[in-house]
Design a protein around this nucleic acid. Structure first.
Lengths: 350, 350
DNA sequence: CTGTTAGCGCTTTCAA
DNA sequence: TTGAAAGCGCTAACAG
């Protein structure tokens, strides 16, 4: 192992003290031009780079942000698609602001054992925390988090309260409103019997989407709409099963909203097996607006989640939180219904 | 801000020295039972957790691994699909071995400016480095890496040499062999005119796949096979364009190999526009084996890349590298051709 | 403007 | 088996 070059070496070569070297490195204003020049030359010559660990210890801050993913294992493709742009956005923003990002991918078990907290949060090697999960968080975790006082942002989850204080800023997107919009679109096209295929039940977005659907259905439908709810699990196959189940009923729904695009694809596949035409025989709406779905025949009507924006906003708010110690807030970003050929007016056969 | 509880506090409460507390924490054998008990009780009572930054500084190692992604921006869905299981595998393995993982997502520009290296590699806050990229790395980057002596693993890239030494262990998968296998499958089904749709040209996997195709075509085809190479960019749309272009030629190919599944989906979509039946009129093979493609009609024949295994192997080798200082090696994992209905025997119209 | 010095919190000899 | 003390490399308050 070669001798690591330290500030000492630089100071010696530049004939100044380590204090001066430190000042140059940190851009302190009160350094003479010639000292600065000598130091920079020495740094260059020795190939010196500050030891960030030592910096962190001395400064009491790490310039490091932890992004904690909490998911069921294994992570579903559908979840990736949503989370990766968020991660990218976080990374882009934070790098610009001179933070490095550390990640930890955790499974649900960790959370419930509150190992997550012990492993991740209590070691003080981070200045802030972004929690990226679609699963409900437990009380003990929230308590630990609250006690830790670590600046925290939740993305797509929360807001959580502990001891009547908000724990963490919550950056959300509007599941409910957009499902209602989709529902209304279908109604305006004459659909009266609308089916809904949920995602996994422990997934809060799925819960919110189902809840919105239930509200609409109970308001506008005069039949037992629970018949037209199928509990899927976000996989293509469960979408397939969903449509299959619906079309064994009499009457079947004339339109189906799916909690993600993969299930919508599964449903479209099943429709094919039944020789149902889309949208003439059944209209389909997905959620996530994944690229492949727009290339289906017919192209899928879907809902676009502002993933990148969620990440960007989350990172921005976290930095502000760290700098100003500002208060936690809750921000909801808009979603967008993208209408394509998979929905159409209800067929009037008379 | 509450007073952070330190080892001092624990030592005081347990009526021992900080040295003893440290020994207990690190599982040092020479500690009396009662001392250990007292310390553990104090830790519990105070809710103490060691400051990892201070530990790192004192020990000269961080137990932190950096995973550096280097991609074009924005990252394509196709790339995610490949990279995320790798990341998960790395994370799972390293957590088990008590390392934390830090990531940095970098764009090509960074690399060429060799900012990547300065920003990431020279700050000594990591014990090892995993580089995850499908882009060719530049000389200056490799030099810096070589000089830094940081234990490094490349996944899906390399092996790179500098100064006639291998730079980093390379964990690869076999692009070439599997493309040849796909080619041979098509030949055995009677296909003589086979088209190829490439990915982006700066992508080494695309290069390797094309190279393998070229080798086979130049060996077995007696016409100008370059006519049947279309340069795509991994998007669905470019696959669409590819088939479109091929079928304006006379004769068109009877089979097409695509450098990823999304382009294969695009090609299948285009086939539909041309009223071509798959596989009767044209056989299609993809690469990546994404789930949606297996739900297409007909289900797509594709090549399965062992993403998770790549990550797992990479992490394992890196840990060994750090511990034993073992030599760099090159490991190639097998890929698998998954045959589905999108390929068939060539049609004999006479 | 700059050198000196006392930590940051932990580990690890060295003695005892 | 344990305590004392010397760092790890850097920053920042203080004195000049």
């Amino acid at each position: 192992m070669m001798h690591k070059v330290t500030q000492q070496d630089v100071a010696k070569l530049a004939k100044v003290s380590t204090g001066t070297v430190s000042r140059v490195i940190n851009g302190h204003p009160l350094v003479s031009e010639e000292a600065k020049k000598a130091v920079l030359a020495a740094i260059e010559k020795l190939g010196y780079a500050p030891n960030t660990v030592a910096q962190s210890l001395a400064q009491g801050r790490t310039r490091n942000i932890l992004v904690a993913f909490i998911d069921n294992s294994p992570i579903l493709p559908s979840t990736w698609q949503y989370e990766l742009p968020i991660l990218q956005a976080i990374n882009n923003f934070l790098r610009l602001h001179d933070y490095s990002v550390q990640i930890s991918m955790n499974t649900t078990n960790d959370t419930f054992n509150s190992i997550l907290f012990k492993e991740i949060v209590r070691n003080k090697s981070m200045d802030g925390l972004i929690i990226l999960t679609s699963l409900e968080l437990g009380e003990s975790f929230l308590k630990s988090l609250y006690d830790s006082k670590i600046p925290t942002v939740f993305i797509g989850n929360g807001p959580y309260m502990y001891d009547s204080h908000q724990v963490g800023t919550a950056i959300l997107f509007d599941n409910s409103k957009i499902i209602k919009e989709a529902f209304n679109l279908l109604r305006s096209l004459g659909h009266e019997r609308i089916g809904f295929i949920t995602g996994t039940d422990d997934h809060i977005h799925s819960q919110l989407r189902l809840e919105a659907f239930t509200q609409m259905a109970s308001q506008y439908c005069d039949y037992s709409f629970e018949e037209y709810i199928f509990h899927g699990d976000y996989t293509i196959n469960s979408g397939f099963q969903g449509l299959f189940t619906f079309f064994k009923k009499t009457p079947p729904p004339s339109a189906i909203i799916c909690a993600n695009d993969l299930m919508a694809i599964g449903a479209m596949r099943a429709a094919k097996e039944f020789h149902l035409r889309i949208p003439q025989d059944v209209s389909i709406i997905g959620f996530d607006n994944i690229e492949v779905a727009s290339f289906y025949s017919p192209p899928l009507t879907s809902i676009k989640v502002p993933s990148y924006d969620l990440g960007n906003m989350g990172a921005e708010k976290l930095v502000k939180l760290i700098q100003d110690g500002s208060a936690y807030e809750t921000i909801t970003l808009p979603t967008e219904l993208i209408v394509r050929k998979s929905v159409g007016a209800v067929r009037r056969d008379t």
